[in-house]
Amino acid sequence: MAEPGTPVVFIHGLWLHATSWQPWVDHFRAAGYAPVAPGWPHEPDTVEQAREHPEAVADLGIDDVTEHYAALIAGLPRPPVLVGHSFGGLITEKLLGQGIGAAGVAIDPAQIKGVLPLPLAQLRAGLPALGNPANLHRSVSLTEKEFRFGFGNALSDEESAELHRRWTIPSPARPLFQAAAANFVLHSQAQVDTHRADRGPLLLISGTADHTVPDVVTRSTFKQYRDSAAVTELKQFEGRGHSLTVDSGWREVADAVLGWLREQGH
């Protein structure tokens, strides 16, 4: 079992504000953990402020975000559990591969270098950012329709619209460009040390209806760890989309994460 007050660091991905983790923070605190959900570098404190200042996060890259969280983690009393969603999942994988963190959970993680499948749904979900090369240095927002396709496709129109209204913020496009080009760049920032044997256990989670990070992509990511002696597991949630951390079924996912952490002694 985990020690009382084991730190947990929640890491969000593109287009959702850090405060979208608040139900998870409350849930994990009630389970005896000491959770925090810091934003990305320069991310304003509220959704409203983030929408008013899209330039605050423009041009951030994967390494900028990884180093930001590594510095925050260095100030914690002991190695935390890392829980990341989407690009936050990729950041979780990178940190764990660097020996940072006691355990990691990557939920619908953005593709890392070496992952080859590129489904059409994923291409379409990334078009709001990738469709214009000039977006590389900008932050980009999702319309309600774009959010519906990329995040809320497994939800009702009403729930998807409410999540878009409540949590979406402009996000830097650069990480998407970096991930998309990863297999063509020698020293890609989307590269993860998947061979490390002395890292903490890692759980990959996918939603089988996800458009932004399709299940086939997460399964391919899982295969990248086949040569590691460290614990690596995959859990799939049938019929769930990219919104699975913030939609009405979030608690099912959170409880699965808590159960897995207990199995791993964290």
Rank of each mutant, 00 (worst) to 15 (best):
A2R: 15
A2L: 11
E3S: 12
G5W: 14
T6E: 14
V9G: 08
I11N: 07
L14C: 05
W15A: 06
T19Q: 13
S20H: 06
W24L: 02
D26Q: 15
H27A: 13
R29W: 15
R29I: 06
R29H: 15
A30S: 15
A30Q: 15
A34C: 14
P35R: 15
A37G: 11
W40A: 07
P41C: 03
E43M: 15
P44C: 01
P44D: 04
V47R: 05
Q49P: 04
Q49D: 14
E52I: 04
P54R: 10
A56Y: 08
L60P: 02
L60W: 12
G61F: 03
I62F: 03
D64N: 03
T66N: 09
L72Y: 11
L72P: 00
L72W: 12
G75T: 07
R78K: 12
L82S: 07
H85P: 01
S86F: 07
G89T: 10
T92M: 11
L95R: 11
G97L: 10
Q98A: 07
G99Y: 13
I100A: 04
I100L: 10
G101V: 06
A102M: 04
G104T: 09
V105N: 09
P109N: 10
Q111W: 13
G114R: 15
G114Q: 15
V115R: 13
L116P: 02
L120W: 14
L120K: 11
A121I: 06
G126F: 00
L127P: 00
A129N: 00
G131C: 14
P133G: 05
N135D: 02
H137T: 10
R138Y: 03
S139M: 01
V140M: 02
S141T: 02
S141V: 08
L142H: 05
E144G: 03
E144H: 06
R148I: 08
F149R: 08
G150V: 00
F151P: 00
G152A: 13
L155M: 12
L155Q: 01
S156P: 01
S156V: 08
E158F: 08
S160C: 09
A161T: 03
L163A: 06
L163V: 00
H164L: 07
H164G: 00
R166M: 06
A173R: 09
P175R: 02
F177S: 01
F177G: 02
A180F: 10
A181M: 15
A182M: 13
F184E: 07
V185D: 13
L186M: 12
H187W: 09
H187M: 03
S188D: 03
S188C: 06
Q189W: 05
Q191Y: 05
A197F: 00
D198I: 01
I205M: 14
S206D: 05
G207I: 03
G207M: 06
T208Q: 01
T208I: 04
P214T: 07
D215K: 13
V216N: 08
F222W: 04
Y225H: 05
R226H: 15
D227T: 12
A229N: 12
A230G: 02
V231L: 12
F237D: 03
F237M: 08
G239M: 12
G239T: 09
R240H: 10
S243G: 03
W250I: 01
R251I: 03
E252V: 04
E252T: 06
A254R: 13
A254E: 00
V257Y: 14
G259M: 10
Q264S: 03
G265D: 09
H266P: 05
